[in-house]
Amino acid sequence: MHTREIIYLSKGLPKDSVYKNEPYVSGIWKEQTDELDVGLEQINGDQVANPEYHGGSDRVVCVYPFEHYAYWESVFVGKLTPSAFGENLTPKGMKEDEVCIGDIFQIGEAVLQVSQGRYPCSTINKRNNNNLLLKGIIKTGYTGYFFRVLEEGKITPDSQIKKLFSHPAQITVSSIHHLYFHDSSPSIEVIDKILAVKELAGQWRTYLLDLKEKIR
């Protein structure tokens, strides 16, 4: 396992932006900060614009692995700004194939649990002025993921990341993404195995139940 460390911390409130002459409001435009004050429902000073699809207790801390920055910069030949994917936490050593639903980490004072992979949306294209990024994220599975908060507390850039619990089911974030977006013949047995992980967030539970109905 790679050494886990924090590269960026970011937070922000929703703001008005324009993309291709179309106005939109989003919380994706976050700024680097030297502290995240993490609560059970949200981070202090960090909000979403569309609570129907974002935020809530299962999606308090948005994570995007730092390793992917170099990949995207090489593909699109351009430097990305910090929190380019609207994430709060940009760690190293915690990619989607290295964390499992239900895993628990202590980061600084906060105790956090992996709840779901991120279901990518087109706002990421707008944030980075790149119409190909969303398609690339779905193809690679470099989506990032979310933490729910088990214990509130502060996180600083020098906070240590300690793994407190490895979920026995060992369902990685990347494996769920692959099943949903790329498996041409998904197995009901595999879907049921994922659904049996009670720590899986409601949003992805719904997606997988719908998928299960389609293949019956």
Rank of each mutant, 00 (worst) to 15 (best):
K162M: 05
A196R: 14
I191K: 05
K193A: 15
K193E: 15
P157R: 09
K162F: 02
V190Y: 14
Q160G: 12
H167T: 04
P186I: 00
I194E: 12
I161H: 01
E189C: 06
H177A: 03
V197K: 09
S159I: 06
I191W: 03
H182R: 11
I188G: 04
I188D: 03
L195Y: 07
D192A: 08
S185T: 13
E189S: 14
S187Y: 09
S159A: 07
H167G: 01
V197E: 14
S187E: 14
V173Q: 01
P168A: 00
I188M: 04
D158Y: 10
H182E: 12
S185N: 15
S184T: 09
L195Q: 08
I188V: 13
L200W: 07
I188L: 11
K193Q: 15
F165V: 01
S174R: 10
K198C: 09
A169N: 12
L200Y: 09
P157N: 09
E189P: 02
I194L: 10
A169H: 11
A196G: 15
F181E: 06
I161L: 02
Q160R: 13
P168F: 00
K163G: 03
V190Q: 15
S159F: 04
S185K: 14
L195K: 06
K163C: 10
K162S: 10
K163E: 12
L195S: 07
F165C: 02
K163M: 13
S175I: 01
S184P: 10
K198I: 11
D158S: 15
L200K: 08
L164Y: 00
I171N: 10
Q160M: 11
V197A: 14
P157H: 10
Y180H: 07
H167N: 14
Q160E: 15
Q170T: 06
Q160F: 09
E199L: 07
D192E: 15
I176E: 04
K198F: 08
Y180I: 05
K198S: 15
K163D: 02
L200A: 12
H167E: 09
I161P: 01
S159R: 02
Q170S: 12
V197I: 11
G202C: 06
F181W: 08
V190W: 10
A201D: 11
L179M: 00
K163H: 05
S184H: 08
S166Q: 08
H178C: 04
Q170M: 12
E199W: 01
E189R: 09
I171Q: 10
H177I: 14
S184F: 06
H167V: 05
H182Q: 13
H182K: 13
Q170H: 12
L195H: 07
K198Q: 15
A169G: 07
I188N: 06
Q160H: 11
A196N: 15
K198A: 14
E189L: 11
A169F: 11
Y180D: 03
Q160D: 13
I171M: 04
I188Y: 00
H167R: 03
